[in-house]
Amino acid sequence: MEEKVSEIVQGYGGDKSYLVPIMQDVQKEFGYLSRDALTAISANLGVPISRVYEVATFYKAFSLKPKGRHHISLCMGTACHVRGAELISGNITDMLKIKDGETSADMEYSFETVGCLGACALGPIIVADGEYHGEMNIAKTTKLLKKLGKKV
């Protein structure tokens, strides 16, 4: 881990102004930002750990907790909202028993809501493990979660 972080930091020439992209790359590498990762970034870049932590908690893109095996993002942009995304969110919460931003105890599913994904014509939209699913409704969401292995 130390080494990988150091490599990423070197990739940006050790420039402190690249703190945000460096943290994005580290998160991409390990799936989340662990305590050790934050410490390593701080040490390698010469930025106080308090600053690193501040940035990690300020931006929505960063997660301090590991994510589940399946990642479900539901668009909650305005276009998707007026087309009923809220009802879908309710359905996901009912089925997975986790709320927005949580990961299931068995580390199988993570669920989060996101701002506009830029594909409003197909709203409501779910991105499941990187794949876009457009024109979603409650029934289709149920089917999708079952396909991802959710037993009901």
Binding site: T78, C116, G118
Partner: peptide, 12 residues
């Protein structure tokens, strides 16, 4: 940054 949820002209 196009933060307005529901707008995507900048992206396009």
């Amino acid at each position: 940054d196009e933060g307005d949820p529901g707008a995507y002209m900048d992206r396009s």
